[in-house]
Amino acid sequence: MPRRFIRHPTGIPIQISIPNCNADLPEHRSNCDAHRVQTNDISVGGLSCESPEIMNAGQAVEVEIWLNNPSFKTIGHVLWCKGQGSGYLVGIGFSDFATAYSVRMVEQVCHIEEYRKQILIEEGRDLSSEAAAEEWIGKYAADFPSYPC
């Protein structure tokens, strides 16, 4: 089945947790902990990330991304989970338009932060987030892909 959404690598830190998890039950105890992980990619359809714990398809998961203050927090659902190294790679999907739009904005912020790091490495310029956003928008916003919603 072809992918519906274009993926963009990000590698940004996020936190995933199980909402309303009952840690009093022994079989849930380890899954109730919040895990700080890295995203592998992100798109309007969802994201994939590393996880130290196996997750079940259909399971609700809270995703928190700290790119701004306050952080962006939403609920998604596990689409798939597969073993990778000593942990798991998890696909998390978002279904409603408002969340999809918000994730798209987060995706743009990810691109801007990557641009900021690239400019520091390649040119030695330490841009503020605002200056990086202004430059990135001028150079790349017109080519940023639009997604069907």
Rank of each mutant, 00 (worst) to 15 (best):
C81R: 10
N20E: 14
Q38V: 07
Q108K: 15
G87R: 00
W66C: 09
E50G: 10
C81Q: 05
F97I: 14
G45P: 10
I137Y: 06
C32I: 03
T74Q: 00
G91T: 09
S48Q: 13
N40W: 05
A100S: 11
A98H: 11
I119G: 08
V109P: 01
Q108A: 15
T39R: 01
H28I: 00
V78F: 01
C110G: 13
G58M: 06
Y101W: 10
A98I: 10
G87F: 01
I65K: 00
N20F: 08
S128E: 06
E27W: 10
S129Q: 10
I112W: 03
A23L: 08
L120A: 14
P19V: 05
I75S: 05
G45Y: 09
G91V: 08
K117H: 11
K82W: 04
I92D: 09
I54P: 02
P52L: 03
D126S: 14
N40T: 08
T99W: 06
I18D: 05
V106C: 00
V78I: 13
I54S: 09
R125H: 08
N31G: 12
F94N: 08
P26T: 09
P70Q: 05
G45I: 12
H77F: 13
G124P: 10
K139H: 05
N20K: 12
Q59T: 01
V37Q: 04
C49A: 13
V44F: 06
E62L: 08
M55H: 15
H28T: 06
I42D: 01
C81P: 06
H28D: 08
Q108R: 14
V103R: 02
W136I: 08
T74F: 04
Y115V: 04
P19K: 07
E50T: 09
K82P: 00
I112E: 05
I42H: 05
W66N: 11
M55Y: 12
H35N: 09
F72P: 01
N31R: 14
Y88I: 00
G93N: 06
V78W: 02
E27A: 13
T99L: 03
A57P: 15
K117R: 15
E114M: 15
W136Y: 13
N22Q: 07
V78C: 03
A60P: 13
D96G: 02
E135Q: 15
L127E: 11
G76V: 02
E62P: 01
I65L: 01
D33H: 11
A132H: 04
A57W: 04
G76W: 01
V63P: 04
G58N: 03
Y88S: 04
V61Q: 02
K82E: 12
G138F: 07
C110R: 01
V44L: 09
Q118M: 12
E62D: 05
P70W: 04
Y101D: 10
Q38R: 08
E123F: 13
W136L: 11
V90S: 09
N56T: 14
E64Q: 15
L120S: 10
A133L: 14
F97L: 13
S71Q: 05
